[in-house]
C-alpha cells in the first residue's frame, strides 16, 4: 500500500512535468500547425541557463529559474519571428527548421559545457515523512511550481483576450484572421510561451534528474507520446495524457523496473491510434 501511494505521488509529480512540456508542444501545433522538434532543446537550454546563473553568476536558484524562462521564451520568440514565420504554412519545412534548431542548440551546449553531466543540485534537500510514506521536498516544490504554471497558462488562455485570440487561431485560422486577429503578432508570442514553459520545466527538473547534452531526446519522445495520446492540438487532452503517462511510468518502474513502462505506453498509444485515432480528448484539427 505504501509503495502504491509512493508510486502514485511520483506519477503525479512526473505527470505535472510532462504536462508543462506537452501543453507547450500542443499549443504550438494547435496554433501554428508546427511540430516543434526543438522542444527538447529548449528544455535543455532552460537547464543550462539556470545552471550557469547559479554556478557562474551566483544568482539564487529561484531567480535563475526566472532567467531561464525569460531566455528560452526570448529565443523562441526570435526564432519564430525571423525564421519559422517565413515558412509557417509549409508543414515539412517548419518541421525541418525546428529539427535544425534542435541540432544547433544541442551541439552548442555540447561545445560550451562539454559532454559530461553538470553538478547541478536542487537547493532544497531532505524529505517529508508522512507515516511510512516518504516524499522528497524537491519533488513537492517542483510539483507546486508546475501546477501553478499550468493554472497560470489556463488563466491566460481561457480568461484573457490574448488567450481567446490564441484559441481562435487554433480553431480556425481563416476565420480568426477575418475577425482581425493578427497571426504575425500572436504566432511568435504563442511560440515564446511554449518554449518558455519548456525552459521552465528544464530549469526545474534537470537539477533533480540530470543535466547533460542529450537529455533533450527522451524529453521530445515523451512529449510526442503524450500529445499523440491526448490528441494533437488538444490542450485538455495533453494535460490528461501527461498524467496518464507519468502514472504509468511511475507504477511500471516501481513494480516492474527497467524500461517496460515505455514499452507499455507505446503499445497503449498504438492501440489508441487503432481505436480512437483522434486521441483521448480527440477533436478534428485541420489537416497536416
Amino acid at each position: 500500500m505504501d509503495q502504491f501511494v509512493q508510486a502514485a505521488l511520483i506519477g503525479i509529480s512526473l505527470g505535472a512535468q510532462y504536462a508543462l512540456l506537452a501543453l507547450g508542444f500542443t499549443l504550438i501545433f494547435g496554433i501554428l500547425g508546427v511540430v516543434n522538434f526543438s522542444h527538447g532543446g529548449f528544455y535543455m537550454l532552460g537547464g543550462y541557463v539556470a545552471y550557469s546563473c547559479v554556478a557562474f553568476l551566483g544568482l539564487p536558484y529561484p531567480l535563475a529559474v526566472l532567467v531561464a524562462v525569460a531566455a528560452t521564451a526570448a529565443l523562441g520568440w526570435v526564432f519564430e519571428l525571423f525564421l519559422l514565420e517565413r515558412l509557417v504554412d509549409d508543414h515539412l519545412a517548419t518541421l525541418m527548421l525546428t529539427l535544425g534548431l534542435y541540432l544547433v542548440i544541442s551541439t552548442g551546449l555540447l561545445t560550451v559545457f562539454g559532454p559530461l553531466s553538470m553538478e547541478f543540485a536542487f537547493p532544497v534537500t531532505g524529505a517529508l515523512h508522512m507515516g511510512p510514506i516518504y516524499v522528497p521536498r524537491e519533488n513537492l516544490i517542483v510539483l507546486a511550481v508546475c501546477l501553478t504554471a499550468i493554472a497560470a497558462l489556463w488563466l491566460v488562455l481561457y480568461r484573457t483576450d490574448l488567450g481567446r485570440g490564441l484559441r481562435a487561431l487554433a480553431d480556425d485560422r481563416a476565420v480568426a484572421m477575418a475577425q482581425g486577429l493578427r497571426p504575425k503578432l500572436l504566432f511568435p508570442l504563442a511560440f515564446a510561451i511554449a518554449t518558455g514553459l519548456a525552459g521552465l520545466t528544464g530549469a526545474l527538473v534537470t537539477p533533480i534528474l540530470s543535466l547533460s547534452p542529450g537529455v533533450g531526446d527522451p524529453v521530445l519522445a515523451t512529449s510526442f507520446l503524450t500529445v499523440i495520446l491526448g490528441g494533437l492540438g488538444s490542450l485538455e487532452g495533453a494535460a490528461l495524457a501527461a498524467f496518464v503517462v507519468g502514472i504509468v511510468e511511475a507504477f511500471s518502474s516501481v513494480y516492474f523496473g527497467g524500461s517496460i513502462g515505455a514499452l507499455v505506453l507505446f503499445v497503449l498509444v498504438l492501440l489508441l491510434l487503432v481505436f480512437r485515432p483522434t486521441g483521448l480528448m480527440g477533436r478534428t484539427v485541420r489537416g497536416a
Partner: peptide, 15 residues
C-alpha cells in the same frame, strides 16, 4: 560536433 553542422546546413537548405 557534426550534428551541429547538419543543423546549420538543414536551416540553410530549408531557408
Amino acid at each position: 560536433y557534426a550534428q551541429g553542422l547538419y543543423g546549420v546546413l538543414i536551416l540553410v537548405v530549408v531557408l
